[in-house]
């Protein structure tokens, strides 16, 4: 049930170019990924992050020392572990957040709306980040840069990542390998259309079979469709341990699948592949390599 709600909220909201304007008092007004207009009166010095991907964004932008609170799941970069924890991903403790006196809270679309509106009630501005593609991640980095008055850092980072993105386009356009990205195996869950994982696969020269099976957002996929669509590469999230991976490889129903037949099942660190932050570009590079290797 909770999961269904999580998945539903993932689908909501859409990535849009961040628009921002300076107000008379030197503050800034932006539109976040949930389409909310947020005004930040002064340059934030105390930041709370409610998602591991956002913490990674902030550290990559050189704002790590301004992060005064994050969630129990935040483990990268290592310094993020020692930051005061405000609770779980979908269950942050509002009192704890308020007691940290943040100037701004960055949340993901997975965070509860009630948490956000309660925080707004306390006068804490909240900005929702919900990227559905690699360019969405870049837009969010720029948005954070604008909000925190660190556009110097953000333009440099965005320029660097854009370069990697363009390079990938040049190298991977020719290859068309059918890729199944496994979020989970029982039932089979994947990331289909309108997900940044799907975008990564496409940019790495893969055809996302979940998209072919009409999965939109994150959803289940029937085993029959996997057999029929016959992916030649399977990329599994490391949330599945080696026992589970062995089970997938030995599943009698999957013996005709090329990826299984030819031993092309790869496991990627779930923190890298499933967090829409700067490391998603590392995931892209890894998948480019996997696809190149598999198609030789």
């Amino acid at each position: 049930m909770i999961c269904a709600v999580l998945l539903a909220t993932l689908g909501a909201g859409c990535t849009q170019l961040s628009s921002n304007q300076t107000t008379q008092s030197g503050g800034i007004t932006v539109t976040d990924d949930a389409g909310r207009t947020v005004t930040i009166a002064q340059t934030p010095n105390r930041i709370v992050s409610l998602a591991p991907s956002i913490t990674e964004d902030l550290f990559a932008l050189g704002l790590g020392d301004k992060v005064v609170g994050d969630t129990t799941y935040d483990n990268y970069p290592p310094a993020a572990v020692n930051i005061t924890k405000v609770g779980g991903f979908s269950t942050p403790n509002i009192e704890k957040i308020v007691s940290l006196k943040p100037d701004i809270v960055f949340a993901s679309s997975l965070n509860n709306d009630t948490v956000l509106s309660t925080l707004s009630g306390y006068g804490v501005p909240t900005v929702v980040l919900d990227p559905h593609s690699l360019t969405g991640i870049l837009n969010d980095l720029s948005l954070i840069g604008n909000v925190t008055a660190s556009t110097g850092n953000s333009s440099a980072l965005v320029a660097n990542l854009t370069q990697r993105l363009n390079k990938s386009n040049a190298t991977s356009n020719a290859i068309q390998t059918r890729v199944l990205y496994l979020v989970w195996n029982d039932p089979i869950m994947s990331a289909g259309a309108d997900t940044f994982e799907g975008d990564i696969i496409a940019r790495a020269g893969g055809i996302n079979v979940a998209k072919l099976a009409n999965v939109s957002g994150y959803g289940t996929m029937s085993k029959e469709s996997v057999v029929a669509l016959n992916p030649s590469v399977i990329i599994a999230n490391s949330a599945m341990n080696s026992t589970v991976i062995e089970q997938i490889k030995s599943d009698p129903a999957l013996t005709t699948v090329d990826a299984i037949k030819n031993g092309k099942v790869f496991v990627l660190n779930s923190d890298v592949i499933s967090r829409p932050g700067p490391r998603a570009f590392d995931a892209m590079d890894q998948i480019i390599e996997i696809i190149n290797q598999a198609s030789q």
């Binding site: 999961c3 779980g88 029982d186 949330a239």
Partner: peptide, 17 residues
């Protein structure tokens, strides 16, 4: 945490496996 969806689907019952 991240094993949540596994548990949720199991509790709802299914014959996919």
């Amino acid at each position: 945490g991240e094993n949540l969806h596994q548990l949720v689907f199991w509790l709802m019952g299914g014959l996919w496996a």
